[in-house]
Amino acid sequence: MAKPDSLQGSMDLLVLKILSRRPNLHGYAIMTAIQDVSGEVLRVEEGSLYPALHRMEEAGWIRAEWVTKDSGRRARIYELTALGKKQLGLEESRWHAVSLAVNRVLREA
């Protein structure tokens, strides 16, 4: 398993946050949601989104399920678990601490 670096850390945060607001999204929807909400600033690569999703699934933060959509296409949709909610809280407070620290550096250096 790859070590979570800071970028992946923020990827986890983004995915968990999106899923907590709008449960039962599939991979493509998560990707576009991040893009839309961030006003096209943040872009998630497919190549890193799915390994991240699978990693979080194995960690038990999210769970997945195959569904057939109205359009007839099959999709794998994800939702947050209780463990994932806890993890989201953790990631959020860590993000706040980090951004606070970065802001302080920008302000006072």
Binding site: T32, Y50, A75
Partner: peptide
Amino acid sequence: EIDLEIQSHMEEAIAN
């Protein structure tokens, strides 16, 4: 399963 999910993703993207 992984291949299927990729497939489904691409179909979704093309549909969009």
